[in-house]
Amino acid sequence: MSSGKPALSYCAQEVREHDHDRYLTALFVPAARREAVFALYAFNAEVARTREAVSEPILGQIRLQWWREALEGIYQGEVREHPVVEGLNAAVQNYDLERTPFETLLDARAADLDDTPPANLASLEAYAEATSGTLSVVAMTVLGYPDGAPARAAQLVGTAWALIGLMRAVGFHAQSQRLYLPDDLLQDHSVDRRGVFNLKPSPALNQVVRDVTDRAGELLLEARALKGEIPRAARCGLLLATLADRHLRDIARADYDPFALPAAAPAQPLRLTLRSLRGAY
C-alpha cells in the first residue's frame, strides 16, 4: 500500500544518505525551491567524497576534472546524462546561478588530494569558506537572496559548519595519515603528529581543536548578529547553525578531545522545527 508520500528524487536520496544534516535543513526550504537545493547538496556530496573514493591523488584529479567538464557542459547547453548533473542543470537554469561559485568549490576540493596540513587557521578558514561557505551562499541564492546580509550570514554559517566538521573528523582523517589541523597551531602547542596518526589523545591536541572550534563559534555569533537584517523567509537557509550548536556542545563536553567524541546522534527535526517557527537559526 502506498504511504501517500511522494518518492524522493535521486538527488534528495543522495543527500539523505551522505549529508543527512543538510538533508534535514533542506526540508524547511519552500517546496518549490527544495529540489534545487537538494541538487546543490548532492553535487557537493559527490565532490566532497572525492578523496575517500579514490586510491591515488591522480584518480581524484580525474574525478574532479569530470565534474569540471560536466559543469562546463551545463553552461554550454550540453548536459551529461547523470542524475546529479541533470538536477544541477535544472537549478542553474531555473535560478540563473552563476558558474563561478561552482568552480570555486571544485578548486577548493582539489586541496583534499594534498595531505599537507593548512599553514594556519586563516588558511583552514579559507578552505572552509570556499567549500561549505560557497555552497551555503548558492543555496541562499536559490531562496532568492543572492547578496546582502542573507548571503553573508549563509557564508558565515557554512564556513563554521565546515570547521566544526573537520574537527569532528580528526580521528577519521588521521587513520589515513591526513590532517586538517593548522600547522602553526600544531607547532605552537607542540602537538606530536605521530601521536595524532596513532589516535593518541593529548592536552596539546585538544587545545588546537578548541582554537578551531572557538573560531567556528565566533563565525556563528557573527551570523546571528545579522538576524535583524535577514528576512524571515531567508532564515530557513541558515538552520545549519542550530545543528552546529549541538556539535559544539558535544566537542566541549569531550574536553575538545577529538578521539573521545560520541557517535553523532541523528539530528532532532523537532528542534529545527521550533527554531524555524520562531524565525531563529
Rank of each mutant, 00 (worst) to 15 (best):
Q13S: 12
V137S: 07
R235P: 00
F172H: 14
Y281N: 03
L248A: 03
T131E: 09
P182M: 07
L156M: 08
A91Y: 02
L40V: 07
A139N: 11
P266C: 04
R33I: 02
L59M: 14
A216P: 02
H173N: 12
A204W: 07
R68P: 00
H173W: 03
E52M: 10
N94T: 11
G195E: 10
A39G: 10
D96E: 15
V138C: 08
A225K: 07
D147K: 12
G165T: 03
V209T: 14
L240R: 02
L221M: 13
D107R: 15
L105S: 07
E35Y: 00
L135N: 06
L274I: 10
A42R: 03
D107T: 14
D192G: 11
S202G: 11
Y95W: 12
V157A: 00
S123A: 15
L124F: 08
Q13R: 15
A174D: 01
L272C: 01
E103I: 11
K227M: 09
W67I: 08
Y23H: 14
A111C: 14
T50P: 01
R246T: 12
R194L: 15
L163G: 03
P150V: 02
I62L: 14
E86P: 06
V191L: 10
A154D: 00
A225Q: 13
D192E: 14
S176M: 14
E56L: 14
